[in-house]
């Protein structure tokens, strides 16, 4: 499998930002290789860690968070190793997949305990801010044991954000959330990414990743299969023709004309328009207006049909 890579994350790191680096990281358990030779750099912005179940996402996240030593390679945060180095948690927050919270505490007590353990100068104010961020003000004094799964998840996110970390790692953060909470969490991640935080969240649900982040790291069978903006990744897959839906004032005439174009490998005439397969994305999109103009046809719609994350993902998994 060949990894496809584009630009890692948006923007260059500023002074107050952090960068998480993985260099040749592998992790194996006996003869089972969970993560195989992964190299990536995560900077400010929101990145989705995508992969089917068993792809190695959680293992990778645990290594990033300092909860697992790499069998080979290094994981560093701003040059410092994350393994056996509790100091990194001043800049790093983790929301693990497991629903682990002290159910005998209230959300306020839980988040306040986090703030105190971080030795924040004003733990009460930090707690208030973190609880407001996840909209848990109304239930903050109730015992966590009485919360729904989504409320527990938001409480854990508040605890992970209480010290305003530069890097936030979230393992399947949308699990158990209802649609409104999901949207709220997505907006929160967007805001944090826009504010220069390095956010990495894992998911096996494509729609979630698509809505939160254009930048993805795709894990398949322990390897990093692709890295970067998924639309760009799609365009780099030159061995797979790009599929476009085209509607025009004369679909049949346009189909005949397109077949003469070198970048087009197939045209299908349907009831609602044409489905065009093009080997070269750029050549086709440049040629189409020229061909249409030459034949006096007006193009009403041009839609790339397989540029969704789902298509990119399925191509990568099948490869």
């Amino acid at each position: 499998m060949t990894a496809i890579s584009t630009q890692s994350t948006a923007g260059a790191p500023a002074a107050a930002t952090s960068t998480l680096d993985l260099a040749g990281v592998s992790r194996w358990y006996g003869n089972v290789v969970a993560v195989n030779d992964v190299t990536m750099r995560l900077g400010p912005g929101v990145t989705g860690l995508l992969g089917p179940n068993g792809a190695g996402k959680t293992t990778l996240l645990h290594m990033m968070a300092g909860f697992l030593s790499p069998s080979r390679g290094t994981v560093t945060l701003d040059g410092e190793p994350t393994w056996r180095n509790p100091g990194v948690y001043r800049r790093l927050g983790l929301v693990s997949e497991r629903e682990a919270v002290h159910t005998f505490l209230s959300a306020y007590e839980f988040v306040l305990a986090s703030a105190k353990l971080h030795r924040l100068p004003d733990p009460e104010a930090a707690t208030k801010r973190a609880i407001e961020l996840v909209e848990m003000e109304d239930a903050q004094t109730r015992r966590i044991g009485t919360y729904s799964k989504g409320m527990r998840q938001r409480t854990r996110v508040a605890a992970a954000l209480v010290h305003d970390p530069q890097v936030l790692l979230l393992d399947e953060p949308f699990n158990g959330m209802d649609p409104r909470q999901r949207l709220h969490m997505m907006a929160l991640l967007h805001r944090l990414g826009d504010a220069g935080r390095t956010i990495l969240f894992s998911s096996h649900i494509l729609e979630e990743v698509e809505q939160v982040s254009g930048t993805v790291q795709v894990m398949v069978a322990g390897r990093l299969a692709a890295s970067g903006d998924y639309r760009t990744i799609r365009r780099l897959m030159t061995n797979r023709p790009h599929v476009f839906a085209v509607r025009s004032t004369d679909d049949r005439a346009l189909a005949v004309a397109l077949m003469a174009e070198a970048s087009v490998s197939g045209v299908e005439l349907g009831r609602t328009g044409l489905t065009v397969k093009a080997g070269d994305y750029g050549a086709f999109t440049r040629a189409l207006p020229r061909i249409a103009l030459r034949h006096g046809i007006r193009v009403r719609q041009l839609l790339p049909e397989d540029e969704s994350l789902e298509s990119v993902f399925s191509y990568l998994v099948e490869a």
Binding site: R90, L92, A100, V101
Partner: peptide, 12 residues
């Protein structure tokens, strides 16, 4: 129960 992660993710 996994709650140890809560304490271990602190710079202590």
């Amino acid at each position: 129960d996994g709650t140890v992660v809560h304490i271990l993710t602190k710079p202590l």
